[in-house]
Design a protein around this nucleic acid. Sequence first.
DNA 1: TTTGTTGTAATGTCAATAGTTACAATTCCT
DNA 2: AGGAATTGTAACTATTGACATTACAACAAA
Lengths: 150, 150
Amino acid sequence: MQISSRFTIAIHMLTCMENFKDEYKITSDFLASSINVNPVIIRRILSQLRDAGIIEVKRGTGGAAVIKPLDEITFLDVYRAVECIEENTLFHFHENPNPDCPVGKNIHNILDDKLKRVQDAMERELDAITLADVMRDLEKYIGESRAGMK
Amino acid sequence: MQISSRFTIAIHMLTCMENFKDEYKITSDFLASSINVNPVIIRRILSQLRDAGIIEVKRGTGGAAVIKPLDEITFLDVYRAVECIEENTLFHFHENPNPDCPVGKNIHNILDDKLKRVQDAMERELDAITLADVMRDLEKYIGESRAGMK
DNA sequence: TTTGTTGTAATGTCAATAGTTACAATTCCT
DNA sequence: AGGAATTGTAACTATTGACATTACAACAAA
């Protein structure tokens, strides 16, 4: 099973919001056309990012904007905002191991700390990457394509 | 989205196969009763573990057994055996970013190495845990419950 | 040949993702 | 005040993957 595309869509959205903030009004339609998904998908994720305190969204008049310093928005923040996952549930554990079997009785206790180690390792890495890193790379790519056009 | 329970089931299966290898014939029905899932689920995972070279399964007469040293069976081996995931696909990327947008055009290039870092971190940790660790903990728990019975 | 078992196909149920239409609520502009 | 653009959300559908279940052919040993 994969982590849903909501995560990469959310990163894409934030990158657009930052990159185009001075040129365009950032509406769900605008974002939808860069990402190529339905505007309603975008609005749902906008709400999740807003609830996480990462962006603000203007009703009526429209427009969304990042409200946190980019180097304080980690991939983990975005992951937690859009992925409906509770703590310690990256792995789906089979529900009803047989309590009358010595293995079935103890398997949960045995595995829990090990699975947590794995999830922690992943989240540590997510926490070490920020939107500022993404913007830096974007400018590099855009700069290169400009140079190529000369 | 979560990693499917096939993974914890597979670890449970291997633990049972090792723990009961001298006492019982390890059939899919036997494993199913410890894990509390349908025997057909077990047989499918048995096939995957066999294809990965971790166990052997006897047709006709029945019985499955681990054929690798426990400390050489890592969680990553099991994960790869049962999780139908290709390399670098932990994250589901949205398919059609707009190539006419500077962000849409570059977002894949920008994110790919960062997502790979996250997946690598997770796999490194999975690679550091082996079935031998699980068996060691199991014996500890079983020992304690025996002591408690005195 | 009987028995117990594996391997696998076929089918069903359920949950989550993702797409879409529709529209009330909101806000700005004139 | 009225109109235009936009957000927030409900409702519905389609698709996919997980997991459960029944059924049975293939197989191996007693």
